[in-house]
């Protein structure tokens, strides 16, 4: 369950950039992995607390998202997809090379110190409290995003997705808004990575690989892009599907791929689209 919630958070952060702003980014894994390291390295090397780590797991990926985004949003369409893949690839290559810092592909194993929240204590070593921690953070992020996409800023994002040229002519700074959306999504992806690391007590360079971003893409598409509840449903459904299938046959990816392709062909608006269509 905890894992599903983490992927839910990752999927909705991706959906902000893909579903709302219309940028297909395969580079979210970079921020996801960075978020993981932003938790693991300070705890392991500097003796920082878990709370500080999670805070860093938002800030550091967001900072990187500013840099990566600054270059990436200059490009659009296919070129944008490819440049985000390349940035993620550089990240994972460096992550594997700098083993003294990142532990390479073997990763870093650590124990997360408990979080002191005034009157009560949250111990990440306990599965239940980790679950509640992840649940709270994911729910808060969901509320934040649903507020965001209904705000004027969210409307600008949608305007860019619908017609970039027109949004520019109306007078919006398209590049800035794309960057902003990229940075918010990057920060939240980082948070997802941070939580994942706290839950697993493990951070690895494999989290940086661009195909990790594929998970978010699948969840968002299957659930329904351009809505927030869609990726939540998508992540929940696919993850539980995977959990059941793993016992039946080893080929989870096969089913996931098949589900993805058939969704694209028959229900391009995802589960949400199907539900809405039925209501009408």
């Amino acid at each position: 369950m905890t894992e599903i919630l983490v992927w839910v958070l990752f999927a909705i952060s991706f959906d902000l950039i893909f579903g709302y702003t219309g940028l297909l980014s395969f580079g979210q894994a970079l921020f996801f992995g960075l978020g993981g390291y932003a938790v693991a390295i300070p705890i392991l090397k500097l003796g920082a607390g878990t709370g500080t780590g999670l805070l860093l797991s938002v800030l550091i990926p967001a900072l990187f998202a500013v840099i990566v985004g600054y270059f990436s949003v200059k490009l659009s369409g296919i070129h944008f997809v490819i440049i985000t893949i390349i940035f993620a690839l550089i990240g994972s290559t460096l992550g594997e090379t700098w083993a003294w810092l990142t532990g390479g592909a073997d990763g870093l194993v650590f124990t997360a110190p408990p979080i002191e929240l005034g009157f009560f204590q949250l111990d990440p070593a306990d599965i239940k409290s980790t679950y509640y921690l992840v649940l709270t953070v994911t729910a808060l992020s969901y509320l934040f995003l649903s507020r965001l996409v209904r705000s004027p800023l969210g409307k600008v994002f949608v305007a860019i997705r619908e017609n970039e040229e027109r949004a520019r002519l109306i007078g919006y700074d398209v590049q800035f808004h794309k960057l902003l959306s990229f940075v918010i999504a990057g920060g939240l992806s980082g948070l997802a990575g941070g939580l994942y690391t706290v839950a697993l007590k493990y951070a690895s360079a494999t989290f940086l690989h661009w195909s990790i971003s594929g998970h978010a893409v699948v969840y968002a598409i299957v659930g329904g892009g351009g809505t927030l509840i869609g990726p939540v449903l998508g992540a929940g459904l696919i993850m539980s599907l995977e959990h059941y299938l793993v016992n039946l046959l080893q080929a989870t990816d096969l089913v996931v791929g098949a589900v993805l392709v058939s969704m694209l062909l028959f229900a391009p608006r995802g589960i949400i689209g199907i539900l809405q269509g039925r209501r009408k």
């Binding site: 369409g77 997809v81 096969l254 791929g257 098949a258 993805l260 392709v261």
Partner: peptide
């Protein structure tokens, strides 16, 4: 174009897994 990228990504996953099987 964007849909085809995602669709071929799905095909990639499926083919890889088939071969693994």
């Amino acid at each position: 174009p964007l849909v085809t990228i995602i669709c071929t990504f799905g095909i990639m996953l499926a083919l890889q897994q088939l071969v693994l099987m």
